[in-house]
Nucleic acid binder design. Structure first.
Length: 330
DNA sequence: AAACCGGGGGA
DNA sequence: TCCCCAGGTTT
């Protein structure tokens, strides 16, 4: 990994934020692009929201990007661009919780804080036979205390890196490599045939089904874009005119709703294209999308709510995966 | 304490 | 195609 052996807190921080809930293989290119475009924290702090979100596009969990920018700007303007050097100060930064604070503290500043991520919790749970889930704050403290007691301050960075890599490569969630595991003689889960039981499983998730009917409103050579707000998925990414329903509706129903909401005469509207149904599955939501391209001749009542963008410039804007999927299918 | 937040890889 | 992964913020 390019950040291996690096102790620049900016690079450590950036890599840790990118790797939250994200595999190394998935985040690696993003990290390299960020470092290339924004080599230091002041460069990142000076960038526009849209530019940074464009660079983050496709990586998911977009609040990470929002917090990344907020923290960069805070450090740049309030702390003279100097990254805080204590665990407590680092923990106060936006987008940084106990895991990331411990990682930055140990990797960048050689402070003796044990990291506990999902990999570490799994290793500890199996080797020591800890039959509590890693969910409640109390249980997290128990894992944290155990990890802290195991931390060897003389091999701080190596220890933290090693136990996470061990969890990711050997003590994997499914089909761990027990046969070649150096701990098999001491591992509680292995000795008691509980590898598939530990760590204790999480609870069910409630799945929500959503139908997003998008209208690509063409006017001249321009298309109407809207930036999504914070209360929902795809925060700060762009989309088209949205009619959301809890079930499938026809394109005529979508058009009808658009005309009614915007006081548009349907006679002044022409349908250019109607896409097949596209799907995207998120952890908590199944999303079905339809795209309807229309052309309108009359002036739109709420035109100021939109950003009118030439078709040729669409690729400059950050979009959710499913919208890019549609755009690439054209 | 519980709910929410994307996307990709492996079975 | 289905199942699984997981840290931080918000509610």
């Amino acid at each position: 990994m390019p950040w291996k052996g690096i102790n620049d807190p900016y690079k450590i921080w950036l890599s840790e934020i990118i790797l939250q809930q994200t595999r190394v293989e998935q985040g690696l290119d993003y990290y390299n692009r960020f470092i290339k475009v924004y080599p230091d924290i002041n460069a990142l702090a000076g960038a526009s929201d849209d530019k940074v979100f464009k660079l983050w596009e496709g990586l998911g969990y977009y609040s990470r990007c929002k917090n990344l920018l907020a923290t960069a700007r805070y450090i740049s303007s309030e702390l003279n661009g100097i990254f805080p050097k204590t665990y407590t100060e680092i923990l106060k930064l936006k987008g940084i919780g106990p895991y990331t604070a411990a990682a930055i503290s140990s990797f960048a500043f050689a402070l003796p804080y044990a990291v506990v991520d999902g990999n570490v919790a799994r290793v500890l749970s199996r080797i020591f036979g800890i039959k509590i889930s890693f969910e409640s704050t109390l249980n997290k403290k128990i894992f944290q205390n155990l990890a802290q007691s195991l931390l060897d301050p003389d091999f701080l960075g190596h220890y933290n890196q090693a136990i996470m890599d061990f969890g990711a490569i050997v003590c994997k969630p499914a089909q761990p490599l027990c046969a070649e595991c150096p701990f098999k003689k001491n591992c509680y889960a292995f000795k008691n045939n509980l590898i598939h039981v530990l760590p204790v499983k999480k609870k069910k998730i409630v799945l929500k089904k959503r139908h997003l009917n998008y209208l690509l409103i063409n006017k001249g050579d321009k298309v109407a874009l809207i930036k999504r707000d914070e209360k929902d998925i795809w925060h700060q990414l762009f989309e088209f005119y949205l009619v959301e329903t809890d079930r499938n509706i026809s394109k005529n129903q979508v058009i009808e709703k658009f005309c009614a909401d915007n006081q548009v005469e349907s006679a002044n509207l022409k349908i250019l294209n109607y896409s097949p149904e596209l799907f995207q599955k998120l952890t908590h939501q199944h999303i079905s999308c339809r795209f309807i391209e229309i052309k309108i001749s009359e002036r739109l009542k709420n035109s100021h709510r939109f950003q009118w963008v030439p078709r040729s410039e669409l690729k400059k804007f950050p979009f959710p995966r499913i919208i890019n999927q549609y755009l690439e299918s054209l």
